[in-house]
């Protein structure tokens, strides 16, 4: 194998973008060794390219992922960007063990609020309340009732904006909010785990509160903040109350088993 081929295979196997910084050093080291033993032998002594890539990944990884860690976000103009969606997307919007209030967006470019960090700061949750045992204790009903309430508010807002002719800006915001609330119902419609349903709904409540706040502010300046605060409160409480109940149930179950 030639040095070029070896480096190319290492590069192709890398998973951590930053680890490419180690390729120049690898090429130099291979070139130095090849002067003594030849290219083919030098490459053989460095082991399989895929194994070398894994070692480089480990050396350059910023985070050691665990079962809950979301995929690392890339960056565009220094701002996080994430176009991948997997089963841990909710962890970007709700991670009590992460102290950051602003985290890379679950999907898209920029930052979003980590409702989990907010709940911990408000003393509503502990950082390690989320775990396989508590997630297993979340109930389908926990997510169903708030979804109906959110949908009713979004529909009422949309109907009022259209029928009362509040203006194009109000109607546009109401349509966007209703679309996001509808999208937030997708995890429920597709029977995803309850935590995904709850997180999606919390995000929808957040957006709905902001849309209502903007609309109210246009007509009664200064009053919009009430709707925004209500949106934040329902987002945080809609997530934390079911989790606190799940914690109680998990603890009771364990005590009963003893």
């Amino acid at each position: 194998m030639t040095i070029d081929e070896y480096v190319r295979r290492v590069r192709a196997a890398l998973r951590v973008r930053n680890a490419r910084a180690g390729l120049d050093e690898l090429r130099d080291a291979l070139a130095e060794l090849s002067e003594a033993v030849g290219e083919d032998r030098a490459c053989a002594e460095f082991g399989a390219p895929e194994e070398y890539a894994a070692a480089l990944d480990a050396a350059f990884a910023e985070d050691q992922p665990d079962e809950f860690d979301p995929p690392p976000a890339g960056r565009l103009f220094g701002i996080p960007v994430n176009w991948s969606v997997d089963a841990t997307w909710w962890r970007r919007l709700f991670d009590p063990s992460d102290t950051r209030l602003l985290v890379p967006k679950a999907f898209g470019w920029g930052y979003s609020v980590n409702l989990g960090a907010a709940a911990v700061r408000l003393g509503l949750l502990r950082p390690d309340d989320i775990g396989p045992d508590t997630l297993a204790e979340l109930r389908t009903l926990d997510a169903a009732s708030p979804l109906v309430a959110t949908a009713v508010v979004a529909a009422a807002n949309l109907a009022h904006a259209a029928l009362a002719r509040r203006g194009d800006d109000d109607l546009r915001d109401a349509i966007v909010a209703a679309a996001i609330v509808a999208a937030a119902a997708l995890p429920t419609a597709t029977k995803q785990p309850v935590i995904q349903r709850l997180t999606a709904q919390a995000f929808a409540n957040f957006v709905l509160g902001a849309a209502l706040g903007k609309a109210i502010d246009r007509h009664r300046r200064g009053y919009g903040v009430v709707a925004v605060a209500a949106g934040v409160a329902t987002a945080v409480l809609g997530l934390t109350l079911p989790i606190r109940s799940a914690v109680e149930r998990a603890a009771r179950k364990e005590n009963d088993a003893r």
């Binding site: 665990d66 079962e67 860690d69 102290t99 390690d128 775990g131 914690v247 364990e254």
Partner: peptide, 22 residues
């Protein structure tokens, strides 16, 4: 910070090195 300790505990639990009780 707890931002370091709690994810670490989560990893240790996933690796089977620690277990939790309420």
């Amino acid at each position: 910070t707890r931002g370091t300790v709690y994810p670490m505990l989560s990893r240790l639990r996933a690796a089977g090195l620690v277990e939790t009780t309420w």
